[in-house]
């Protein structure tokens, strides 16, 4: 059973950040069956993490597992596109 390794980079507790976090939680539970290791990183508090991952925009979601690695930019409100991207296998 493969778990989804997901990291969400947000900037502070803005409305946009909250929206992204809520959207990601919902996708995780409703679409991925809760099979997720989810971490949320605030770039304002951890700029070095943003530096390491070369994050440019917020929110940014990185799926590091299962491969391939995928990146998403935005508040994850376009649910179908997020799902299509997450489930893409090649």
């Amino acid at each position: 059973m493969k778990r989804y390794q997901l990291r969400l980079f947000v900037a502070g507790r803005s409305a946009r950040s909250e929206r992204a976090i809520a959207n990601l939680r919902r996708i995780c539970q409703e679409d991925l069956g809760g099979d997720c290791d989810l971490s949320i990183i605030d770039v304002l508090e951890h700029p070095q993490e943003a530096e390491n991952e070369k994050i440019l925009a917020t929110p940014t979601l990185i799926k590091s597992g299962p491969l391939p690695i995928r990146r998403f930019i935005g508040d994850l409100s376009v649910r179908e596109r997020v799902l299509a991207g997450l489930e893409q296998q090649t």
Binding site: V43, E51, I55, T60, R71, F72, I73, G74, R81
Partner: peptide
């Protein structure tokens, strides 16, 4: 790096860095 755009965003990460 070929990110998919899935909603509204800003460049706060860049500014923060």
């Amino acid at each position: 790096d070929d990110p998919t755009v899935v909603g509204d965003y800003d460049l706060d990460a860049l500014i923060s860095r």
